[in-house]
Design a protein around this nucleic acid. Sequence first.
DNA 1: AAGTGGTCTAGACCACTCT
DNA 2: GAGTGGTCTAGACCACTTA
Lengths: 242, 242
Amino acid sequence: MLMINKNSPVPIYYQLEEIIRQQIDDGTLMPGKAIPSEREYAELYQISRMTVRQAINKLVNEGLLYRKKGTGTFVQPKKVEQVFQKLTSFSEDMIERGLVPKSKVLTFEHVPVNDLIAKSLKLENNSTALKIVRIRYADDSPMAIETSYMPADLMKDLQPEQAEESIYEFIEKNLQLKIQTAYQELEATIADEKLANLLNISEGDPVLLINRITYTSDGIPFEFCQSSFCAYRYRFINYLTR
Amino acid sequence: MLMINKNSPVPIYYQLEEIIRQQIDDGTLMPGKAIPSEREYAELYQISRMTVRQAINKLVNEGLLYRKKGTGTFVQPKKVEQVFQKLTSFSEDMIERGLVPKSKVLTFEHVPVNDLIAKSLKLENNSTALKIVRIRYADDSPMAIETSYMPADLMKDLQPEQAEESIYEFIEKNLQLKIQTAYQELEATIADEKLANLLNISEGDPVLLINRITYTSDGIPFEFCQSSFCAYRYRFINYLTR
DNA sequence: AAGTGGTCTAGACCACTCT
DNA sequence: GAGTGGTCTAGACCACTTA
């Protein structure tokens, strides 16, 4: 049996959360079937029921489990990963889809901000932003053209080589910022000549345009990003709850 | 001062949640500023700190508040509504955007299911589905063409007149089902001649195609819906968290 | 050092569902 | 009636941040 180490620095509720998660993965807990009751978990691992609830709450919030009053807690029947509704970088998204991401930096320069960028990033009108344009590949096919604007002073230590890899990684590891939320607008457009050439498609072909503003956990916007995805190769997936 | 009624059937944590929510609304609690500490709330309302945490947890999950270890709990600066990430019907969505929704039913018939429908709705291959095709208007402009498939037996009491209104309303009020989650795929396409005529646009114009499967709280799929939105008039908005 | 959120306990009573 | 999740209490110790 998977055990819980009460002396570990890892919180007990998190250990239990991982145990349940893994048992769903390996089929010990079956989709649509009830998991052990909260009191059973508390007895089994000799922990408080409130701690059990904390673990289960997180999984319910993620949509992996659902509760039925007076009946029990059940594994959500759909096994599709919720992971796509999470805020991910392009690289993380592609890896989730089983594809190999790659990037090529086309532009890496400082530019004065226009009104839209200034407003999105909450910058002064006369300030400068770092502008990065990248072709994003998946399994060596061009998947998207991505134009990012970030506050220049925040990104002063970012090297173009890092931009070929992952900017999110740089922000989280080097700047120690917590990336937390993003606001996105998605719309359908058609490719103009320039975009078509970059994406290796034809003029007039459909393109999924995503505008994203990304915020740290303090609510500070640090990136405005405009992505043009080749519609033939990419669809956007999300989950909604009522 | 807003009070908490301990004898009310309304849970205490929910009463506190509503108090905090309203104080954010009316500006008593300012964006970016700290709210009272958990211990202060507990003392103020003479309730347990765990109950306070339960109220705050919900608001943190919704993104209205955020916590900083050792520092306090703060109001998220962004005032944008989270409402668009919720599972809404077309009508609800349009009303949120300040537009007046209207529908016209083009097709209302029973059809044998094909493989995609059967798989999406978890139906047998020889069963029938109710197929409804509707033009969706916003402020009298055609916004989308929507084709829905639902299990025929489940929808046997649905009248075409109700479909002009809201099918979600019928499901929730008449069938007493809880609509809970939806899985969506969004992609960009271009309008063919037929679609262009219906949407009052030109052939080759961009169209946002949304495929949605909607589930009840028991995880049972009850609707497969394919919507073609006029890209000039509609963009999809969502929020992501890491 | 004082205050904050993070974690945890060992109980309790309630409304609900199922048999 | 037995079992379930929903709510709630009154403490406790911890790591962290700020002054």
